[in-house]
Design a protein around this nucleic acid. Structure first.
Length: 280
DNA sequence: AGGCGTTCCTGGGGGC
DNA sequence: TGCCCCCAGGAACGCC
């Protein structure tokens, strides 16, 4: 499940090679992969155009051209990699980018949820996405306001891309565990010191994960590098194993429709009744 | 407003 | 071994 660190890893990988490339064609091998545009739009707006910049916004990979942007969302199983002489496109390829240099970029997606988007600018993405957790604009005050301004299940809120952009199931579980907050806590009654912890942990965990090329195994055909943050996971995917803090067994529950890993001893539920009670 | 169920997909795991 | 069923999940959407 590519989240912010995994998408950043992909961007770091493809950016230096993509910049300066001119698009010859983009072939949809799965018809639904073009989300909001047609072949004709491509011919008018992308084909022959040069790639100026490649960046990340939330979980989107953004390829910037002079007048338009193409956004790629990997959803759960999407992968982007270069095609070289030694490999062939897999049967799960949903789109194939061909450049005038004859280089080719593959968009591979087993479950076919990933999509390509065409926009005139970043604005449509900015409109539906919250702040970047690693940007300077994302202050503790802003984060506190986001939590206090709503009476919502905390995990659901952190997964909501319009509130905060880039977190997914893995990093929400990790951040909440490290901050001692139960995912079913109500966002507006979490005490300030816990909010501060959560704020710092989100930043630290994401930064750490980026430095280790993320968690999801990314099978690049060129350099074979895979995400090393897998070894650093403290709570995610550790159902029935010992909590690293208190040695209690980790449990798996459902929160906001997602499989959720928690330590019942370390993570405190905050709601109206017990907001002043601290964990033992 | 927010919670919840449904939809999109396929590989893989559990049960028999 | 084989087969069937169901589950995993990010985000959009409709409903309550």
């Amino acid at each position: 499940m590519p989240e912010l660190p995994e998408v950043q890893t992909v961007v770091n990988y493809i950016r230096p090679i993509l910049i300066g490339e001119k698009v010859k064609s983009i072939t949809p091998l799965w018809p639904k992969v073009f989300h909001n545009f047609s072949d004709r739009d491509l011919q008018k707006k992308i084909n022959g155009e040069k790639i100026i910049e490649v960046l990340r916004r939330g979980k989107f990979i953004v390829i910037q051209f002079k007048k338009v942007i193409m956004a790629i969302h990997l959803r759960m199983t999407g992968k982007v990699y270069y095609l070289n002489k030694n490999n062939s496109i897999s049967k799960h390829t949903t789109a194939l980018f061909t450049f005038e240099s004859k280089n080719q970029l593959v968009f591979d997606d087993v479950r076919k949820f990933g999509r390509l988007y065409l926009y005139n600018s970043l604005e449509p993405l900015n409109k539906c996405l919250g702040p970047e957790p690693l940007s300077n604009d994302f202050s503790l005050d802003l984060f506190s306001e986001l939590l206090k301004g709503r009476k919502r299940n905390t995990k659901a809120l952190l997964l909501d891309q319009s509130i905060l952009a880039g977190l997914g199931n893995i990093y929400v579980d990790e951040s909440l565990w490290k901050s001692g907050i139960h995912p079913n806590s109500i966002s507006n009654v979490i005490p300030a010191f816990r909010v501060k912890k959560l704020y710092k942990n989100i930043k630290n965990i994401l930064t750490d994960a980026i430095n280790k090329n993320g968690t999801t195994i990314i099978d690049f055909s060129v350099n074979g590098e895979s995400g090393k943050y897998t070894n650093d996971l403290q709570i995610y995917n550790r159902n029935k194993l010992d909590c690293f803090h208190c040695k209690n067994k980790i449990t798996k529950i459902r929160v906001a429709g997602r499989g959720t890993h928690i330590c019942l001893k370390c993570q405190k539920i905050y709601n109206r009744k017990n907001k002043n009670v601290e964990p033992t």
